[in-house]
């Protein structure tokens, strides 16, 4: 493969982790709940997938198992933040600590082993013959198609072109208004926080079954946090979120290329690029364009618990 195709191929593959996690976070934040547990959910999803696949060699089963585990943890988180209305930041941090710690503990027996079964490439006929994009996007595993094509389009349609999407966005903007309009605020928050958590865990499964593909301690390496930051940068919209994931995939791919080609930069420094890049992405647009602040505005009630029967 020539350089450009190889670069993009890796970019799509690497970016898929961030894109899927970002999509999950978009769902949660659109209904007004900031889920800082993404990192822990990814870790749990990653180890669940590896454990499942070690037991039965079907990667799709591993992915689904991760989704279920993510949903379960998500429900616990939602119960605390939506029903009991505990502080979302603290609960999210707690979820990250719990998820990361638990995954590390379980993962000791799986460390370093390559995944017993991974997601294989599926070439899409015709489209995979396109120059560059053909090999880069259309000759990937099935999850890539899900993450870059099916999900963002479906979620965009859901959020912005349906009645249900209108209602759920209202929950994130002004839960009191949504409540007065008869929308079940808590039920919607609970449902989408759970769904978002499932997707975050799915991103972890993608990490260990399609990208790396294996488990090791600390394999998530902050990707969950980057995904949370990307959602801010993407203005809480599904398609830009996925594009930002791809952008990150590109930065990561550049790092790999640099290492492979012996660029005179230490590998550790190349590894720093994604984090430094994310910080730049959050800060620079806000500084550069004042108007950006309004365009990228968060749902107005993000992070606030909703109390109906309280003066």
């Amino acid at each position: 493969m020539d350089l450009l195709t190889g670069l993009f191929s890796t970019a799509f593959l690497a970016g898929g982790v961030l894109a899927l996690a970002a999509l999950g976070e978009v769902l949660a934040e659109r209904v007004g709940v900031v889920n800082l547990g993404a990192e822990g959910l990814m870790a749990m999803g990653a180890i669940t997938a590896i454990a499942t696949v070690t037991a039965t060699p079907y990667p799709m089963l591993g992915f689904l198992a991760a989704l279920v585990v993510g949903a379960l943890f998500g429900m616990v988180f939602a119960a605390a933040t939506v029903w009991l209305r505990a502080n979302q930041v603290l609960c999210g941090l707690a979820l990250t600590l719990m998820g990361t710690g638990l995954a590390s503990t379980i993962g000791r027996s799986y460390s370093g082993m390559p995944a017993r079964a991974v997601f294989e490439r599926i070439e899409i006929p015709l489209l995979s013959q396109l120059p560059i994009l053909g090999k880069a996007l259309f000759s990937q595993n099935i999850l890539v198609y899900l993450i870059y094509i099916i999900l963002p389009v479906a979620l965009h349609y859901l959020l912005f072109k349906t009645r249900h999407g209108l209602n759920l966005r209202a929950v994130g903007e002004n839960p009191a208004a949504a409540d007065a309009a008869g929308i079940p605020v808590n039920a919607i928050r609970f449902a989408y926080v759970t769904a978002g958590s499932a997707l975050a865990a799915g991103a972890g499964a993608y990490l260990t079954l399609a990208f790396v593909p294996s488990w090791s301690d600390g394999v998530v390496a902050g990707r969950g946090w980057i995904a949370v930051a990307l959602v801010i940068f993407a203005g809480y919209r599904p398609i830009p979120a996925v594009m930002s994931g791809l952008l990150f995939g590109l930065i990561t791919a550049l790092g790999f290329v640099g290492q492979a080609r012996g660029w005179p930069v230490a590998p550790a420094v190349l590894s720093m690029l994604p984090y430094l890049g994310t910080i730049a992405l959050i800060i620079v647009p806000v500084l550069a364009w004042q108007r950006m602040r309004r365009v990228m505005a968060a749902p107005a009630a993000l992070g606030e618990p909703y109390f109906r029967d309280v003066r």
Binding site: R163, L166, N167, R169, A170, E173, N174, A176, A177, A178, A180, A181, G182, I183, A297, A300
Partner: peptide, 17 residues
């Protein structure tokens, strides 16, 4: 008013309906 500030008039009218 229980209106969503960021939404349009049409969106607010059709909320939860």
């Amino acid at each position: 008013f229980k209106l969503v500030q960021a939404f349009t008039v049409a969106e607010n009218i059709h909320l939860g309906w």
